[in-house]
Design a protein around this nucleic acid. Structure first.
Length: 427
RNA sequence: GGAGAGGUGGCAGAGCGGUUGAAUGCACCGGUCUUGAAAACCGGCAAGGGUUAGCGCCCUUCGAGGGUUCGAAUCCCUCCCUCUCCGCCA
């Protein structure tokens, strides 16, 4: 949620900012609602004040033993007026809340202009794209030759967009997530957390997946409204929901390895081959809860933490700054990390690192106490994948494949593979 | 699943239906004292919203949502959560 008072006071500036990302704010209808809200609120509160003083007077009169029948009647009348007014106010407030909850975050000033991904700006490219002296296969071909990647079995038991991994590939998948967790906890100072894989709608609303994107998530049947997490961002960021944190506790840095579930509604026909776009995938997620004045720097450093994984695995990648029109709903600014897939001859997203400013904090009511003012202020939240495990597996297979069909296991993963150096058809 | 207890400010913990937004303690902030620190003492200190140039004034909030009442932290109903005991169990 963006700052409501900023929206009221600088409506035009806010509208102009949101227009950068393609969101149209109807200034006139907003102004009309606001004027009416203000009037209703003032009237309601005046009535409430009247009722309160009356009630107090009745109490005092009764204590003296005076007759209070007249006072009682007058109060009852006020009570009825309050009911009418506050009902009207509630309805209007509800509409305004809905508007606010469906309004995306403001765009950071450093974000490039543009309507869609075509305008994203490549910030840097790291690593060298390998020259193959043979025709590189894509990860599906490689995986199926090992009999370690099976989409047909997955479809049989779960439908399309799932995968079954087996043998060395299943282990490599596990090795990747273990390696990432160990790196982020040992080298980058994150605290590992294990979290629920399903969450209440409040949590989804806190990070911005609801109310707008209900179709993207899987909802659980049951007496509670729960959702399978589309990313660990939801449970992990919401760890601080409702809290007022001490300045000394910040920054909080969490890392979690979880499965993620996405319905991929509207993605029919996109990336139907392979492990790139699945209903279920594993991800190691980095989350930071920081002071506002440290957010920009934390965002940069979190991005480098995700990049460190790609470097360690010797995977060529590029960092792309998303343009205003390509930003996610909650994001203030975002870097995508895109890894090179030789099988596709293309860079594909493997991590998305975002700075949410106080947008999620407002929704979650997550604050910290600023020692300078001694007042609670909204925290800033930042997160990024470090990395998507399934895509990382695919990238390793494609980038480190050999002419004979085998795959060389990157050095840092070998300890997690029992020392194994090569995955080949023979085992 | 059965039985009981409870959810109050950053934390702990009081609170006869009527100056209780809430005692007290801790924490925190300011001050006195001290070479400095600690201790002691004095003072301040909930959040959100409205209104105001500002001082201030007003409204809402005591797990959530309903209800009773002129008036609810306090009474009633529903739900959620926590704790203890028993049962069951990965």
């Amino acid at each position: 949620m963006i700052d409501p008072s900023q929206l009221r006071q600088n409506t035009e500036a806010v509208a102009a900012n949101l227009a950068r990302r393609g969101y149209h704010l109807d200034l006139e209808s907003f102004a009309a609602m606001e004027t009416r809200r203000k009037a209703l609120q003032v009237e309601t509160e005046q009535l409430q004040a009247k009722r309160n003083t009356q009630a107090k007077a009745i109490g005092q009169a009764k204590a003296r033993g005076d007759d209070v029948t007249e006072l009682l009647e007058a109060s009852a009348e006020i009570g009825r007026s309050i009911k009418d007014k506050s009902q009207a106010l509630d309805e209007l407030q509800h509409k305004l809340d809905e508007l606010m909850l469906n309004m995306p975050n403001l765009v950071h000033e450093g974000v490039p202009d543009g309507a869609d991904e075509a305008s994203n700006v490549i910030v840097r490219q790291v690593g060298t794209i390998r020259e193959f002296d043979f025709q590189p296969r894509d990860h599906v071909d490689i995986g199926e030759r090992f009999e370690g990647m099976n989409f047909a079995d997955a479809a049989k038991i779960a439908g399309s967009r799932f995968v079954v991994l087996a043998g060395a590939l299943a282990r490599l998948h596990r090795a990747l997530s273990q390696f990432m967790l160990d790196m982020h906890t040992a080298d980058h100072g994150y605290r590992e957390v294990y979290v629920p894989y399903m969450v209440l709608s409040e949590a989804m609303q806190g990070t911005g997946q609801l109310p707008k994107f209900a179709d993207d998530a899987f909802e659980i049947q049951g007496d509670h409204q729960r959702f399978l997490i589309p990313t660990a961002e939801v449970p992990v960021t919401n760890l601080v929901a409702g809290d007022i944190l001490d300045a000394g506790e910040l920054p909080l840095k969490f890392v979690a390895h979880t499965p993620c579930f996405r319905s991929e509604a509207g993605a029919y026909g996109k990336d139907t081959r392979g492990m790139i776009r699945q209903h279920q995938f594993d991800k190691v997620e980095l989350v930071q809860i920081v002071r506002p004045d440290q957010a920009d720097q934390a965002f940069e450093s979190l991005t480098t933490h995700a990049e460190a994984v790609l470097k360690a695995l010797d995977l060529p990648y590029q960092v792309s700054a998303l343009c205003a029109g390509d930003l996610g709903f909650s994001a203030h600014r975002t870097y995508d990390l895109e890894v090179w897939f030789p099988g596709q001859q293309a860079y594909r997203e493997i991590s998305s690192c975002s700075h949410f400013s106080d947008f999620q904090a407002r929704r979650m009511k997550a604050r910290w106490r600023n020692p300078e003012t001694n007042k609670p202020q909204w925290v800033h939240t930042i997160n990024g994948s470090g990395l998507a495990v399934g895509r990382a597996l695919a990238a390793v297979l494609e980038n480190h494949q050999n002419a004979d069909g085998s795959v060389t296991i990157p050095d840092p993963l070998r300890p997690y593979m029992g020392g194994q150096v090569l995955i080949s058809v023979d085992g």
